[in-house]
Design a protein around this nucleic acid. Sequence first.
DNA 1: TGGGCTGTTGGAACATCGTTCCATTTCTGT
DNA 2: ACAGAAATGGAACGATGTTCCAACAGCCCA
Lengths: 223, 223
Amino acid sequence: MPFNSQRAERRTDALSKARIVEAAIQILDADGEGALTFRALATRLATGSGAIYWHVADRQALLAAAADHIIAGVMSEVTMRSKPQDAIRTIALGAFDAIYAHPWIGAQLSGDPWQHAVLRIMESIGRQVQLLGMPEAALFNATTALMNCVLGVAAQHAAAARLPRNTERSAHLTAIAEGWALLDPLEYSFVRRLAAQLPGHDDREQFLAGVNLVLAGIQSIWF
Amino acid sequence: MPFNSQRAERRTDALSKARIVEAAIQILDADGEGALTFRALATRLATGSGAIYWHVADRQALLAAAADHIIAGVMSEVTMRSKPQDAIRTIALGAFDAIYAHPWIGAQLSGDPWQHAVLRIMESIGRQVQLLGMPEAALFNATTALMNCVLGVAAQHAAAARLPRNTERSAHLTAIAEGWALLDPLEYSFVRRLAAQLPGHDDREQFLAGVNLVLAGIQSIWF
DNA sequence: TGGGCTGTTGGAACATCGTTCCATTTCTGT
DNA sequence: ACAGAAATGGAACGATGTTCCAACAGCCCA
């Protein structure tokens, strides 16, 4: 009779996609995108990687589900009884704040602009754009232009999300600005000018300015 | 005397970062981002992976160098004697065409918005924005808003670049649109409306429309 | 001319990772 | 009670980025 023939204790609480996604989000928030491995996830859930694959297709699907879970929460909270322009600003800022709080979402959104989480944002924004009442073709151009603002900050924070965990946010920007300052003054006069403002600038404010720019463009072209 | 003690023939032409980047671009263009492995690269260059690491820091640096090489070529070709708005359109379309021709650049640009290749584009656009003559702070907001248009299409093509190589471009869009058509009509009314237009739309035209929207916004706010 | 020294090369070896496979356990309906 | 289906845990596979190191080439200086 083999001494060791029995398995380890089976978990009492059942595994489920929801529980897996929840654990994945905890890992992502704590240690960034690189830390989300099936081994780490299996350890945290006290199971094996095979069991996880029963509930989730692959790593990409897991990341998409994690991003969708958070974006869904943010988008459902947005209530709007104001005029469309203000509603659009509220939605966009909601997306911004989510990306800011969970930088790995930036990488996920900009990595696949047609995943469900992006659709959620697009639907929210698109509905408000519809209320502005412009021709059909212009409708989609305007919505995707607004989406570009969101995907733009997503990409910016995606880069920061891949950084080692200890790096400070402001230190990151300062380091970038210092790199820019070393560029050839003739070839990169504009970028060097920008570098001076980079460390002290407000991400959120700049994001909002971009959205307002697009809104102003919509207003001026069709109204 | 061991029969096999001599090494393989050493290459006559010297290895160099330029030669490595060139070979990397060939692989990327031929088989997409996933195909660029150090093993494949070493085989194509008839050398070992260690030799490549002597010239290139790591895979990320290699991809950045490849993207920069192509973007540098595109940006240097842009000649402009027209008014700033037209010049901006020309630059943006140049970036668009580069991304369209080499979809892996999309993944690279949107994956790290502060790499050199992106700076090149930003410098080109920023200089033209300067010529418009607006206040300092607005300058950077306007430039980054225009960059968002570029990073937006970059992200869109990045997704397509990760697809299996045989997939057609239009088939990809059609498949996406079909997926959208299956969504809940109540929750996703806007996206479903968009799905109808997706397969037949012109990427380049929509990109230009986004740029024009931002340009119109700039015009309407500061002039 | 010869002998080290530095820059360079090729390829084996290492550490991980995503994913697959499968023996085994648990659940469910009859 | 039992058969089939659902679910589990962990070993094993194949591939990748990266590191390491023994060997080599060209060069300067004695």
